[in-house]
Each structure stands twice: as structure tokens, then as C-alpha cells.
């Protein structure tokens, strides 16, 4: 049981796909114009990630090694299509806002990466926890970034006004430059916090953002 819990929190904190591994960045930057968009994107990714982890883990002993990558892609694409259609049916506004980035979940390297690294080698329960953990970590990162951008760029949080009367929102924060710069400083802050916590000398290349470079293929 302890292993299940630690697998979950590994995805949320230690190996947070967005803030620690820095993979799958396109949707992170694109959909965080408002917290509500980030939230639904996160839900869609949790669903696709967990569902494909389950199926891949179930079939891990009958999947021939040579065709496993195409097989993973088909599985992920199928669940992405399901997520796409369900969102279109029940949250049409959100579906329209997220637009292109829902079908693009299929090329999100987090999902293919977890299929290859975890689901194809581990039991179903563990794969579920991994999918939920990674997905939650992704969602959390989206919500943090979207909160920064929405509060500064629109003066609201989840659509509710949160800033004092005289505050003039900086529109640039919900535009592309705001996305890049805020995420850059968010990652910088994460590095600073982890360095402080672990008391390691900062800037050593063995650290998260340095080692993440190798995983950055997609």
C-alpha cells in the first residue's frame, strides 16, 4: 500500500511532469489563460493517462515488443478521441477554448513516456496510481500557472474578481509573452525551493532541470 501512495505523490511532487521533468510544455503554455481552462485540460489528461495506463498494463504480457510503440499510440489516440467527444458533448464552451490542444494530448510526451516507462512493465494498480499521480501533478502545475496569469492578466481567479478596486490587469499576462515569462520564473522558483530544501549546491547540472534535458524528446 505504501508503494501505491508513494507512486502517486512521486508524480505530483518529485517527478512532477511540468515543474520537475519539464515535458509536454505546449498545452501548459497554451491553455493557462484562465484557471478553468487549465483545470479541464488537466482533467482530460488525467483521464487519458490513467485509462491508457490501465489498458497498456493489462495487455503488457501479450503486446509484442516490436510493435509496442504504435500500439501505445493507438491506445492513447483512442482515449484522446473519447475525451475530445465527451468534452464536446458536456462542456462545449471549454471544448471550443481548448480547441486544438485536446486532440494534441495524443502527442503529449508525458503519456507516451509513462506508457513506456511504467504501464508496460508494472501491475495495473501501480499503473493506475502512476497515471493519477502524474495527471494530478500536471493539473496542479496548470492551475498554479493559470492562477498567476489569470490574477495578473484579468484580475480574476476561476472567473471571480479577486483584486482590489484600482487594480488594472496587465493583459500581456494572458498573451504568449506572459505565458513564457511566468512559466520561466515559476520553474526558477521551483529550482530555488528544491535547492533550499535539499541544501544541495545550486546550479549543479545533475539537478532536475539539468537532467530533464535528456528526457526532452517530444
Amino acid at each position: 500500500m505504501g508503494r501505491m501512495v508513494s507512486t502517486f505523490f512521486n508524480g505530483v511532487i518529485n517527478e512532477n511532469p511540468t515543474l520537475r521533468l519539464v515535458i509536454g510544455m505546449c498545452p501548459v503554455l497554451a491553455v493557462t489563460t484562465a484557471v478553468v481552462n487549465g483545470f479541464w485540460m488537466g482533467v482530460a489528461v488525467i483521464f487519458v493517462l490513467t485509462a491508457s495506463n490501465i489498458l497498456i498494463s493489462l495487455l503488457r504480457n501479450v503486446t509484442p515488443a516490436q510493435v509496442r510503440i504504435p500500439f501505445f499510440i493507438v491506445v492513447i489516440a483512442t482515449f484522446t478521441t473519447i475525451a475530445d467527444l465527451v468534452l464536446a458533448a458536456f462542456q462545449p464552451d471549454i471544448h471550443a477554448t481548448l480547441g486544438l490542444f485536446i486532440p494534441l494530448i495524443v502527442v503529449n510526451c508525458i503519456i507516451l513516456g509513462r506508457a513506456e516507462a511504467v504501464a508496460s512493465r508494472n501491475t495495473v494498480p501501480l499503473s493506475i496510481m502512476d497515471g493519477l499521480g502524474m495527471g494530478t501533478g500536471f493539473t496542479l502545475a496548470l492551475i498554479i500557472l493559470a492562477s498567476i496569469r489569470e490574477i495578473l492578466g484579468a484580475g480574476t481567479w476561476f472567473g471571480l474578481p479577486v483584486m482590489p478596486e484600482g487594480f488594472e490587469p496587465a493583459v500581456v499576462m494572458i498573451l504568449p509573452p506572459g505565458a513564457f515569462v511566468s512559466l520561466g520564473f515559476l520553474l526558477g522558483a521551483m529550482n530555488l525551493i528544491t535547492a533550499r530544501l535539499s541544501n544541495r549546491p545550486m546550479g549543479s547540472k545533475s539537478q532536475s532541470s539539468g537532467s530533464a534535458g535528456q528526457k526532452l524528446e517530444g
Binding site: V22, V172, P176, P177, G178, A179, F180, V181, L183, G184, F185, L187, G188, A189, N191, L192, A195, M202, G203, S209, G210, A212, G213
Partner: peptide
């Protein structure tokens, strides 16, 4: 130190997009 790697890359991309 804490800005090396991805953080500085993202900040630069932001300035380029400006």
C-alpha cells in the same frame, strides 16, 4: 543558478514573442 536551463530559455522565448 536557479534560472539556468529551462527557466532562462522560457524567459527568452517570452521576450522574443514580445
Amino acid at each position: 543558478a536557479s534560472m539556468q536551463g529551462f527557466p532562462i530559455a522560457l524567459v527568452s522565448t517570452g521576450l522574443m514573442s514580445i
